[in-house]
Simulated scan of single mutants.
Amino acid sequence: MSAFPRTRLRRLRRTGALRDLVRETTLAPSDLVLPLFVEEGLEGRTPIGSMPGVDRHGLDSVVREAGEAHALGIPAVILFGIPAAKDADGTGAWDDEGAVQLAVRAITAAHPELLVLTDVCLCEYTDHGHCGRLRDDGSVDNDATLELLGRTAVSHARAGAAAVAPSDMMDGRVGAIREALDDEGFADTPIIAYSAKFASAFYGPFREAAGSTPAFGDRRSYQMDPANGDEALREVLLDVGEGADIVMVKPAVPYLDVLWRVKQATRLPVAAYHVGGEYVMIKAAAATGHLDERTAVLETLTAIRRAGADIVITYHAKDAAQWLQ
């Protein structure tokens, strides 16, 4: 390579058209997935205090919101359910007439070209807020939880979910869900595995939104230590071996190094979840005038794509899609 002055990298940065032509990473509405919270029995929508611009939706409202996302070029939504009642086992998770199941049917009927993905976990449905069935000592019983997750995934697939996304971080859950889906005739339903899900401080706003804060203890015994990158790859590769079709890293920005390593190691489609805490940091800084929201959001989402994400799940999806258009 010639040295300066013959080599001048600024030559390719001078005009917008030329900059676009040599851009290495693209960001488009088709890369995004919008998370939606649907609450059983709710009429209309209600704001979530910890997440400005994000609401809990009733059935009619979630159909409208999904339609608006689709009109902006966003190809998929992912649903999180809030039941009317909770119990120790989270039985509402696999209720065929539950909030998510009803929403899947309603959205797919109204917007048949929109992909409706579903989060598969029990934390929104249990009265203790943990992601599985508890033992007498209060710890989560990994193996007993697997059957419940399988039931939930089958119920979502029966309702018409385009893919199911287990987020519980139980060992062996991808294989258990794959077997349950296959046994019930849903061999073509993909699994998007939350494979590297870290025990993160950035989940606080989501837990308020979904009503899933643990009543005691924390989730560090099953979610990953933020210090461990090699273990993240082990988790991902185990999920791939159990039949995951897409793997996910969550959160996104604090774990871009993990995201890159996962993409290089698997060459599978990789998703990244830009979580509630990441969302509200930008919102808060923009509200005080410390940064420009549009510029910060698009830069952040582009960085997630550059690190290896084929799919970005983000609460900024609708705004980003409008800005990109």
Results as ranks from 00 to 15, higher is better:
residue 231 E to F: 10
residue 235 E to Q: 15
residue 236 V to I: 10
residue 220 R to W: 03
residue 216 F to H: 11
residue 224 M to A: 02
residue 233 L to A: 00
residue 222 Y to N: 01
residue 238 L to P: 08
residue 248 M to Y: 02
residue 227 A to K: 11
residue 220 R to F: 07
residue 235 E to S: 14
residue 250 K to W: 07
residue 248 M to G: 01
residue 219 R to G: 05
residue 218 D to E: 11
residue 217 G to S: 12
residue 236 V to N: 04
residue 240 V to F: 02
residue 232 A to L: 06
residue 219 R to Q: 08
residue 246 I to D: 02
residue 227 A to G: 11
residue 237 L to T: 11
residue 238 L to Q: 14
residue 230 D to I: 14
residue 217 G to N: 08
residue 214 P to K: 01
residue 248 M to C: 06
residue 240 V to N: 01
residue 225 D to A: 09
residue 226 P to F: 13
residue 234 R to Q: 13
residue 238 L to G: 14
residue 219 R to S: 13
residue 232 A to K: 00
residue 217 G to A: 06
residue 249 V to L: 04
residue 250 K to P: 07
residue 236 V to E: 04
residue 238 L to E: 11
residue 243 G to L: 08
residue 220 R to H: 06
residue 235 E to W: 09
residue 232 A to P: 02
residue 222 Y to E: 01
residue 229 G to Q: 14
residue 230 D to W: 14
residue 251 P to R: 08
residue 218 D to V: 14
residue 212 S to I: 09
residue 221 S to L: 10
residue 235 E to Y: 15
residue 250 K to N: 05
residue 224 M to Y: 04
residue 231 E to Y: 10
residue 225 D to R: 07
residue 248 M to E: 00
residue 250 K to R: 03
residue 248 M to F: 09
residue 233 L to G: 09
residue 218 D to F: 10
residue 217 G to V: 05
residue 236 V to Q: 00
residue 217 G to L: 07
residue 224 M to R: 04
residue 234 R to E: 09
residue 214 P to V: 00
residue 238 L to N: 13
residue 213 T to G: 09
residue 242 E to F: 09
residue 235 E to T: 12
residue 247 V to P: 01
residue 220 R to P: 11
residue 230 D to S: 15
residue 217 G to R: 08
residue 231 E to R: 06
residue 225 D to G: 10
residue 239 D to W: 02
residue 246 I to G: 05
residue 241 G to E: 14
residue 251 P to Y: 09
residue 216 F to D: 14
residue 231 E to L: 13
residue 215 A to G: 15
residue 211 G to N: 07
residue 251 P to H: 11
residue 217 G to D: 06
residue 238 L to A: 15
residue 220 R to V: 07
residue 247 V to C: 02
residue 244 A to V: 08
residue 237 L to F: 12
residue 231 E to C: 09
residue 233 L to P: 01
residue 228 N to L: 15
residue 241 G to H: 12
residue 232 A to T: 03
residue 242 E to Y: 08
residue 224 M to N: 05
residue 231 E to T: 10
residue 232 A to S: 05
residue 213 T to P: 08
residue 213 T to F: 13
residue 247 V to H: 02
residue 231 E to G: 10
residue 227 A to D: 03
residue 223 Q to E: 00
residue 240 V to E: 00
